[in-house]
Design a protein around this nucleic acid. Structure first.
Length: 207
DNA sequence: GCGACGATTTCG
DNA sequence: GAAATCGTCGCT
């Protein structure tokens, strides 16, 4: 099954539902910001307050995660490691605080702009390969926190140009997450060279 | 108010 | 393997 043929309304409906189908359905969708468009190739699902210890919302609402508790289809942008931005799509009904982390994408428009923001990159497939790299390529930062993604704002999410067959979607444990390694909530398009490399989480105290 | 650490990336 | 680098959150 695939979702893109139903248009923006269908995408909105998908995002308002359970987080796992939403995450899978986001594969192949296009995200545009800062003059760059990526085709999403890798995502991770995070339940909100529903017992997912890896979710930023699992301890309840804070100033940082507040947008997660609002309606689906908005951008949850957060800053980490003192230098990186990452972006999520809020999903599910209001109050559930579930979200999908956009982990990687293929730059399909604005390659030159993306390269100007990612000077360390040699190959185009590395431009948005990784959640912080994706944000860097798109120029996403705090100013886009909470923005609605399905309208005409500065960050726009659109259905896939081509459907992503369910059979090509692979699943595995989430990256960088302490514990919950048995929860296969990382999804990617099999065979895509833009999918980020899996790294097992190592607690800082043991580095 | 303070301190540990993070849904990471890059370089050595 | 380890540094870079700082906002966030819970209170060892």
């Amino acid at each position: 099954m695939s979702y893109p043929e139903v248009g923006i309304a269908g995408l909105a409906e998908l995002l308002a539902g359970p987080v796992v189908p939403a995450a899978r359905g986001l594969l192949g969708c296009r995200l545009s910001a800062g003059g760059v468009t990526v085709r999403i190739t890798e995502v991770e699902a995070y339940a909100g307050t529903a017992g997912d210890l890896a979710s930023h919302a699992h301890r309840g609402r804070t100033p940082r995660n507040a947008v997660m508790f609002g309606p689906a289809g908005h951008a949850y942008v957060y800053f980490t490691y003192g230098m990186h931005w990452c972006v999520n799509v809020v999903t599910g009904p209001q109050g559930e605080a579930a979200a999908v982390l956009l982990r990687a994408g293929e730059v399909v428009e604005g390659v030159e702009v993306a390269r100007s923001r990612r000077t360390a990159v040699r190959r185009d497939v590395d431009l948005a390969r990784g959640p912080a790299r994706l944000c860097a390529a798109l120029g996403i930062d705090r100013t886009l926190y909470g923005r609605y993604l399905l309208g005409d704002g500065p960050v726009r999410l659109r259905p896939a140009a081509e459907p992503v067959p369910e059979a090509t979607i692979a699943a595995g444990p989430r990256v960088g997450v302490t514990g919950a390694h048995d929860v296969p909530w990382r999804f990617w398009i099999a065979g895509e060279p833009t999918v980020s490399q899996y790294r097992r989480h190592v607690p800082r105290s043991r580095r």
